[in-house]
Design a protein around this nucleic acid. Structure first.
Lengths: 351, 351
DNA sequence: TTGAAAGCGCTAACAC
DNA sequence: GTGTTAGCGCTTTCAA
């Protein structure tokens, strides 16, 4: 690794001059010296030392992606295609801007914060963050940050959230199930704080529109760690006979659950209808293919990055809570119990 | 962000002392000063500046994951569950060691090399790398590196590859198809340089064992970019009637292809048998569920990280080419054409 | 157009 | 035990 200083010495010129031609400040340096320097640069494959550069300029060109590992959740968070797709979108957007991506995952939010500020991270994308964690990060980290899939119910901090119309998603799906004649619908969530809760409010709205009561027994909260998932599944199996439809908060859960219950002898959709949320490849591949709510994840990542870079450029947005559109995708996992009451406006079609 | 210098001034002591207590060198500093310093540390939430630290110590605590984006391949590489799972395994192994993970993706290997050396990356995990690219990296980067899924046919450079017994995988699957009575088997790969080629040699071995000729028309190379995939699929559809079985080099391709061909009216496995490779969640969810070759991806990531950290610790391995075991997983995507010739030893069972 | 010099925040050799 | 000092590789004022 050759350094600026070494090259300056070889050429008998100053480091300033070398630095100037490296950084393309052509007006500061004569044609002739520029060429001499450029020649050395090429010859020795000079690569600037990022640490030195960052230290001198007090920046880092680092964008942090923070994912809080919930110990009750994924053992491997990248396994979920939602995160995979999102990451891909973010990665390319970040690299396009000449920035670098660093991923921070931990159960311990303090550790995450330490790493973020230690690396002098210039911007943050916070995924699936709960309100308290957001505040913790915000109290130590003042640079731009964009949320994805985070609900911050209290109106304390300024924030930008690239969200989804989750309420509408919950509503659309519930309405569809009701239209299909289902009345005993279980709602399966994996927490009641984040997006799942909002989807649940949409669920409630549809029920109310139908003049139906909200029965809390119909709300099933999955405990999704590998070990506990098994336990959850057994519990769910035990009550499955009480319902005609399972409405799940993600394709992943729907598909996993379906696999488990199939092995127990339950047939889909003959014995039980099931729906997902996200519309990823799983939904298309499952048997039966899954009726679900579609969202465009790649777009979300792209938009989040766009906002972040505008903020890094100095733009100061007011609190914004984007609700990207969702749509119902009807496939084969819901059984028609009664003809729909009305000729409902579901013109959605299988992808 | 408070600095060591500032704290030293506040306490009227030297930066060395502060640095010593930060780094737990308790023997170098008196109980009393240590406490004073610790108090300030806590009070101001001191976090060391990584760039400064790295510069001073000439290290980085960075492990680079390099993925060469092939412009003819994935538009979003993380979408493939293989990469997702691998990344998850690597991430946790890396963080456990107190290192940080940086992902380098590009079509341009020169750019990747620049970033790697610019960040002073201390170790590399190279995924699915071709031989030439490996040499290019190696010519500029001398620190530890571990390959995953890379075949370096020429015996030039020392290397460590955490591979799979791909030959055996190709063999097992082909033998199984032959045992099931298939004679017109298409082999679908997406390149003929890396692991797919080795799998193909296993395929050939099985054919030879059966005294069958190798017909190059049976080798179909998929061009997998989004746009071209469609084209490839049409071509494949056009020749599908010539075969009784499609042997694919990944579950992903198998499942995608199956979806396309189903839409064209082909029934699986009645009209056409199909097999995968990897045994990820797709294989289990597909309809029919996929007969495939199982590999343990998480284990691979863990082992790769283990090797890398041992090398960083100074261990100097000789060239090693691990072949992690594979096994056949029989599910429902292969039709039995004739009774097997012998009572073959497939005691593999659906997962 | 060029260069000297200070500084980014931290570490480490060495002297006290 | 503690402090002085130089230095990691680069940028950046400011003066020449």
């Amino acid at each position: 690794m050759i350094t600026i200083k070494e090259m300056a010495e070889m050429l008998g010129i100053s480091t300033t001059t070398v630095s100037n031609v490296i950084n393309g400040k052509t007006s500061e340096v004569s044609q002739k010296t520029a060429e001499k320097v450029q020649k050395l640069l090429d010859e020795y494959d000079y690569v600037p030392n990022m640490n030195a550069k960052n230290l001198a300029q007090n920046h880092s060109r680092l964008i942090g992606i923070v994912l809080k590992r919930r110990k009750d959740k994924y053992e491997n968070i990248f396994t979920d295609p939602f995160h995979g797709e999102l990451l891909g979108a973010l990665e390319s957007a970040i690299r396009e801007q000449g920035y670098y991506m660093m991923i921070y995952i931990s159960e311990d939010i303090e550790e995450i914060v330490r790493n973020i500020v230690g690396w002098n991270t210039e911007g943050l994308i916070l995924i699936g963050m709960l309100h308290d964690d957001y505040l913790k990060i915000r109290s130590k980290y003042k640079k731009p940050a964009v949320l994805i899939d985070s609900y911050t119910p209290k109106n304390i901090a300024r924030y930008v959230n690239i969200g989804l119309d989750d309420e509408e998603g919950g509503y659309l799906m519930t309405k569809y199930l009701l239209d299909c004649g289902h009345r005993k619908i279980a709602f399966l969530a994996d927490n009641m704080e984040g997006v799942d809760y909002i989807r649940y409010t949409g669920h409630q709205r549809a029920l109310q529109e139908y003049g139906l009561d909200i029965d809390l027994d119909n709300l099933i909260v999955i405990r999704p760690s590998k070990y506990e998932r098994q336990g959850s599944m057994e519990e769910i199996y035990a009550v499955a006979h009480k319902f005609t439809a399972f409405m799940c908060c993600s394709d992943y859960y729907a598909v996993t659950l379906m696999k488990y219950l199939k092995a127990k002898g339950i047939r889909f959709p003959e014995d039980l209808s099931i729906t997902g949320f996200d519309d990823n490849l799983y939904a298309q591949l499952a048997c039966p293919s899954l009726t679900t709510i579609h969202q465009d994840i790649f777009q979300r990542g792209t938009i989040a990055a766009e906002y972040l870079f505008k903020m890094i450029d100095g733009w100061n947005p007011k609190t914004t809570n984007l609700s990207l559109p969702v749509r119902l995708v009807v496939r084969d996992s819901v059984k028609l119990l009664n003809p729909p009451e009305d000729d409902s406006s579901d013109d959605s079609s299988a992808l």
